[in-house]
Write a protein that binds this DNA or RNA. Structure first.
Lengths: 338, 338
DNA sequence: CTGTTACTTGCAAGCGCTTACATTCAGGCT
DNA sequence: AGCCTGAATGTAAGCGCTTGCAAGTAACAG
């Protein structure tokens, strides 16, 4: 690692025998220059191995060509995938992605948002509606476009899924099958409106048919296969065990299926299990998991496109809802008569 | 989104009745100031809702408080996890993480590295040893510390795993069990030295016992459960099917197990299956997967610590190898006599 | 009472680049 | 021939912050 003194615009200008302004233009608006001038500059640039300094550029132009995203965690396929899609979309437009994860800590999230805004991003995306007041005011007063994702909130332009409907949809499927006793395994709902909305959706669907999802019928657990497994055990240990179990997300549902395998419970004969997300594994596990498909890659791509448009000043829909749909596979069946 | 004119250092200085230098110090070296001056500044800061501008700060100080990481993809638990760990470690030290993924395209990787260096990062981390010459020279001449991860290369400080040994280790386990006919499912090795080294390790282990892993015995496939499933089918369709299948990584191995379930093959009675990585699912699937544990979270944390240290000018080990270890679970057994 | 020392704070010179505005020059027109 | 126009460059004023150095001040020793 030999740290050379970096060449500056002025060095290039001197070598090429032009002004710094010309070099600057050669780099950002090459169409404005005459062919041979451009060539002289280019050769000077490569001879000096010149690389423009982002800081100076940002300071002078007011743009950083960087877009920030604050997510709960990267260690979760749906966020990872959406971010991967954003990244691809942005890179194609000359933008970089600045990512920050806070592991579901609202305080860390506030710090991350503050850091991004301070560090300078041309636009910012956050996930969900659960934020500290401090975060909300930073977001609302931000000097750059801000996009809320995964959920919706009138205070900010949003792009997301109707999580409540997802819950409603999957519960309806089970109800249609004839199930009456339900158990739900949810991620922690405390600082996670997506999880909360899904539970609410399930609850609403049951209520519409005169059934109740009691507080005791939903067990909240950490986002992991192990959590799903433990929750299944807990739910099935009840006096009147549920005939259908709704995983707030696929990972939890898969964990439940795995536990069922391990304990000899048959799915769906003994218990139907469903999830929400439609991760890759949902279609590969035995039995394939009935779930609700969320187009996360598309969400990422659309979010990036929208952010890019807003940065350029284009008006965009204040609310963009991505389509979701039930995917019936083989982890669900009518409850056994007994 | 009301874009106010941002307050500047000078505004704060004026309101607080001090010089800009003092305000600057109040923000970065508060210990240098007198108590009441500090308070006056702080109150002015909050009254104006002042937020320092990263660009100007970076330009003037030469530091961006940002560290860049270029990975193949985020959509893979091991990278996601390592990055999550780095992020946590860095945030605790006031640094931000700039992440870029190139989806295994060396050209995009070069562009990402260039963009990061241009945008300005205080240090940079890349994955693996397979890079374009252009990328290598950018890396080697970078004006900031660069760290190579997951693998090792003398040209750059490295922190990683001995992937060859991982392959050797898992093959030895199978050999010790008495297996003689092997099949391997690997990710694409073309631009992925980790995958290549693992195959090489397996090959070396077999060779040491007089066995050969022919080119035809390893099928390369995309990184997905579906890829693992298809590969298993392909391998088992051979005239003399292998008694042991080595997944170049856990995802592929899990895919293979899933396919075995789906087609009625018993694991490990009919075929032993192993992986490398030790993802969460490895221990939860039935049967639990025998694999090689790679401490990716620790890798991320250690990488972040090392990067931080180098940024501060501290000398660090040129090569840091993270410990790996065989985890024997129940997807392996002695081959059936036949 | 004065010279030191140790703190605080202010001054002002940049950091490397962008960009509004000015300048120059070659044609094209009248 | 004189004027206008537009293209190609140059001039130079910052962008908002950090920081080496200077200046001012209070406490303290001699």
């Amino acid at each position: 690692m030999q740290r050379k003194a970096k060449a500056t615009l002025a060095d290039v200008a001197r070598l090429a025998g032009v002004s710094t302004a010309t070099v600057s233009r050669a780099l950002s608006r090459p169409d404005l220059l005459q062919q041979d001038t451009l060539e002289r500059v280019s050769s000077a640039v490569s001879r000096l191995n010149y690389m423009p300094g982002g800081a100076a550029r940002a300071l002078a132009s007011g743009r950083t060509l960087t877009i920030g995203v604050v997510v709960p965690t990267l260690d979760h396929a749906i966020f990872a995938r959406a971010i991967q899609a954003m990244q691809t979309e942005l890179a194609g437009n000359g933008y970089q992605l600045l990512v920050s994860a806070h592991d579901y800590s609202l305080a860390l999230e506030a710090a991350a948002v503050r850091a991004m805004l301070a560090r300078g991003v041309d636009a910012l995306m956050v996930v969900g509606t659960d934020h500290l007041d401090e975060t909300w005011s930073l977001l609302i007063q931000a000097p750059v476009p801000v996009l809320l994702s995964w959920s919706f909130d009138d205070r900010l332009p949003s792009i997301g899924f109707d999580n409540e409907r997802a819950g409603h949809m999957i519960a309806d499927h089970l109800l249609d099958l004839g199930h009456k006793r339900f158990g739900m395994i949810s991620g922690f709902t405390h600082t996670n409106d997506r999880a909360r909305m899904r539970v609410a959706g399930v609850r609403a669907a049951l209520a519409a048919r005169g059934l109740e999802l009691g507080a005791g019928d939903v067990v909240e657990t950490g986002f992991s296969l192990a959590g799903g497994r433990a929750a299944l055990t807990e739910l099935m240990a009840r006096a009147a065990p549920p005939t259908a179990i709704i995983g707030g997300n696929d990972l939890l549902a898969v964990g439940a299926i795995l536990e069922a395998h391990a304990t000899g419970l048959r799915v769906p004969q003994d218990v139907s299990i469903v999830g929400i997300d439609d991760l890759e594994i949902a279609s590969h596990i035995t039995p394939p998991l009935t779930t609700v498909h969320l187009p996360t890659t598309e969400l990422g791509r659309a979010a990036a496109a929208q952010l890019l448009a807003r940065v350029k000043g284009a008006e965009q829909a204040h609310r963009l809802e991505m389509p979701i749909g039930l995917v019936v596979r083989r982890s669900t069946a009518a409850p056994q008569k007994n």
